[in-house]
Amino acid sequence: MKKNLTINEIAKIANVSRGTVDRVVNKRGYVAEDKQRQIEKIIKENNFTPNTHARNLALSKSLKVAVILPEHTAGEYWEPIVKSTETAGKNYLPFGLKISYYFYNQNNVETFKAIEKKVFLEKYSAIISSQPQNPSIKSFLRKCTTKKIPFVLLGTNSTKYGALSNLGQDATQGGRLAGKLINYGQEFPAKYLIFNIYNEQNINPNVVSRIEGFKAYFKENKKIKTDLINLSINDEHLSAKIAEKLKSLTKNDGIFIPNSRAHIVAKLLPKEIKVRFLAFDLVNKNLQYLKEGVIDFLINQKPYEQGYRGVELLYRYLATFQEPQEVINIPAEVITIENLTFNEEINFTDKEKSST
Rank of each mutant, 00 (worst) to 15 (best):
F256Y: 11
G310Q: 00
Q173D: 08
V208S: 09
N343H: 09
T159K: 15
I39R: 12
K148I: 06
I7S: 02
A171P: 01
F188G: 06
H53R: 14
Q133P: 00
A66I: 03
V275Y: 05
Q133T: 11
V207R: 11
A11N: 07
Y104P: 00
L181C: 04
A266M: 13
N183Y: 14
N26K: 10
I137T: 07
R28V: 08
L167A: 00
A332I: 13
N56T: 05
L231G: 01
L193D: 03
A216W: 07
V16T: 13
K44F: 10
K12D: 09
A216Y: 15
L154A: 01
E244H: 14
N108Q: 11
T20L: 06
K222V: 07
A14P: 00
K351T: 13
G293D: 08
S129W: 08
D235K: 13
E33K: 15
S136L: 11
A266R: 09
K117E: 15
E9K: 15
T6Q: 07
I7V: 13
L141H: 15
L5P: 01
F195I: 00
P324Y: 02
K35F: 13
K61A: 06
K223L: 14
L5R: 05
F256K: 12
P132T: 02
I149L: 01
V327N: 00
Y124N: 12
V109L: 13
N339A: 07
T226A: 08
F256A: 11
K302F: 02
I10A: 02
Q36P: 00
